[in-house]
Simulated scan of single mutants.
Amino acid sequence: MIRYALVCEDDHRFEAWFSSSDAYDTQAGRGLVECPQCGSVQVKKQVMAPAIANSSRRETVTGGVAGGPESVSPDDLVRKVQAHIRANYDYVGERFADEARAIHNGEKAERLIYGETTHDERARLSEEGVACAPLPDAFVPSSGKKTN
């Protein structure tokens, strides 16, 4: 897993996880990496300092929690994100765009959802002010369902 700091053409800054640098290049080249704020697919990597692990210990990701920092291996982080999605989000499949729009418009009860949608549908949702963003493949729950 690799985390990139990204910036879109409108200077919105965000981070995203990819299984490898080639995965980022492939997804960006196909227009699949988009800004979660404006939906632009004109996204570039920012300069980042590499995380280097020495041979005596495994690479860790540090995240703040109440009571102090916690070290989590990248594999554990992926499993925690997948478990969180399974436990807290409703899978709506290919109905994602319709469900997200209905929730946004108050036609359905507010809840956390995930599912599949096309790039064009995501762009339309963004234009309408409906918040959604694709999830890196590694974070998709093991059921094979893709999060937006």
Score class of each variant (00 low, 15 high):
R3Q: 03
R3W: 04
Y4M: 09
Y4D: 01
A5S: 11
A5N: 03
V7M: 07
V7N: 02
C8H: 00
D11Y: 03
H12S: 07
H12D: 11
R13F: 09
E15M: 01
A16F: 06
W17H: 08
W17R: 05
W17T: 06
F18K: 12
S19V: 07
S20C: 13
S20E: 14
S21A: 14
S21D: 15
S21P: 09
D22F: 14
D22W: 14
D22A: 15
A23T: 05
Y24S: 02
D25M: 10
Q27N: 05
G31I: 03
V33C: 03
C35M: 07
P36Y: 06
Q37K: 15
C38M: 06
G39H: 05
G39K: 04
S40M: 10
S40N: 11
Q42E: 08
K44M: 06
K44S: 13
K45P: 05
K45W: 04
Q46V: 10
V47F: 14
V47L: 15
M48H: 02
M48A: 12
P50D: 12
A53H: 02
A53Q: 03
N54S: 12
N54L: 09
N54W: 09
S55F: 07
S55P: 01
S56L: 13
R57M: 10
R57H: 09
R57D: 10
R58N: 10
T60I: 14
T60A: 11
T62D: 14
T62V: 15
G63N: 09
G63L: 15
G64D: 13
V65E: 02
V65N: 01
A66R: 04
V72F: 01
S73W: 01
D75H: 01
D76S: 10
V78T: 08
V78C: 06
R79S: 12
K80G: 11
K80F: 06
Q82A: 15
A83Y: 00
A83F: 01
R86N: 12
R86E: 15
A87G: 06
N88I: 05
D90K: 04
Y91A: 07
Y91N: 07
Y91I: 00
V92Y: 05
E94F: 00
E94A: 07
E94M: 00
F96Y: 11
F96V: 05
A100T: 06
H104E: 14
G106W: 01
E107C: 00
A109M: 04
R111N: 11
R111P: 12
G115N: 05
E116M: 03
T117G: 13
T118Y: 09
H119L: 12
E121V: 04
R122D: 11
R124Y: 00
R124I: 05
S126Y: 00
E128Y: 01
E128I: 04
C132L: 03
A133Q: 13
A133I: 13
P136A: 12
P136L: 09
P136I: 08
D137S: 12
A138M: 11
F139R: 07
F139I: 10
V140D: 11
P141Q: 06
S142P: 02
S142M: 08
S142V: 12
S143K: 01
G144Y: 10
K145Y: 01
